[in-house]
């Protein structure tokens, strides 16, 4: 007798009602267009994001919403609104501790070792699409904390850029409320912020010193050409709004802006599949990043 219990219900998710196949189509559409991927176990997240948009549109079924994303006249606008919904609340300090751990444990030690051979002990970081500044400020805190440890004898600077003037202005001001600081310890708050009333904190001079804010349009080739010598670039949930051709161009710029051995970080569920194959995908504990190989690696590792 053949056994029919092999596909017994999994233990973990208590709610294992079958997923509407339309959500699978939406998932694949989002992946193809933006590079953001929802694994099977994250479907409930995708579903809740879609449902918010569906409520706004007074759409009741997933198949109907899929039509809004694909064949209705407003599909481009709707897709953008859905992507906004997907990335909403993504930005607060220390949002991605796994990125910082990978930097501390693996990436920086290897970069320091390689660069230590030359006399200029300086590191350059770039937050491309820094929005209201949570990411560069987090990075600054992280690097400042390592100043006498891992980075003893090294200097560093962070370039933080965005296209949107309002965001940049907010980033420069560096005033944050409880939501942005929810993952920031009291010790860090005391060390790097000052109280400006209204339950808001503002980054102090120590925190701001390593950061340089600038308005850069990632599609502006002439400006992109001049951001050379980067060690690590962060570009989280920015490329998802670009079409494939522009995405390719931006990523190629990042590639030439990075020094060999440098890394590009994207958003947590973002992929460069079919966008670029010059970078090497590298897995770290809890996070993936893209490596610009050194000359030796590039020869051996290429497919």
């Amino acid at each position: 007798m053949a056994i029919e219990i092999a596909k017994a219900k999994p233990v973990a998710p208590p709610d294992s009602t079958p997923v509407d196949p339309a959500y699978l189509k939406i998932r694949d559409l989002i992946y193809r267009i933006s590079g953001i991927y929802y694994s099977e176990e994250k479907h409930y997240l995708l579903k809740s994001r879609c449902e918010r948009r569906m409520a706004a549109l007074r759409v009741t079924s997933a198949p109907e919403y899929f039509e809004h994303l694909t064949i209705r006249g407003n599909r481009d606008a709707e897709l953008r609104l859905l992507l906004n919904e997907i990335t909403i609340g993504e930005t607060y300090m220390f949002r991605h501790p796994a990125q910082l751990e990978a930097l501390r444990n693996v990436i920086l030690p290897s970069i320091l070792q390689a660069k230590g051979l030359i006399s200029l002990k300086r590191l350059r970081f770039w937050c491309a699409g820094c929005s209201t500044g949570e990411e560069p400020h987090t990075l600054a805190m992280f690097l400042l904390e390592e100043k006498d440890k891992l980075l003893a004898g090294w200097s560093f600077e962070i370039l933080a850029t965005d296209l949107n003037d309002n965001s940049l202005e907010a980033a420069r001001a560096g005033i944050y409320g409880e939501y942005a600081l929810r993952n920031t310890s009291d010790a860090m708050r005391r060390k790097y912020f000052k109280d400006v009333g209204n339950q808001k904190l503002q980054g102090n001079d120590l925190l701001k010193a390593p950061i340089r804010f600038e308005r850069i349009n990632l599609s502006d080739d002439s400006k992109m050409l001049f951001q050379k010598g980067m060690d690590v670039i962060f570009c989280c949930n920015v490329l998802i709004y670009f079409d494939l051709a522009s995405k390719r161009r931006v990523v190629q710029h990042f590639y030439s802006n990075l020094l060999p051995g440098g890394y590009l970080f994207l958003g947590n569920a973002e992929s460069l599949f079919q966008v670029d194959d010059s970078f090497r995908l590298v897995h770290f504990a809890g996070v993936t990043a893209y490596l610009k190989p050194t000359a030796a690696l590039a020869g051996g590792g290429k497919k």
């Binding site: 999994p10 233990v11 973990a12 992946y31 991927y37 694994s39 099977e40 176990e41 994250k42 569920a269 992929s271 460069l272 599949f273 079919q274 995908l281 897995h283 993936t288």
Partner: peptide, 19 residues
């Protein structure tokens, strides 16, 4: 698509731990 594959594996890790 190695990235997608590893995202899927990542998603399944919790399941594996639970099992």
């Amino acid at each position: 698509d190695l990235v997608r594959f590893t995202f899927d594996i990542d998603g399944a890790m919790d399941q594996i731990v639970a099992t």
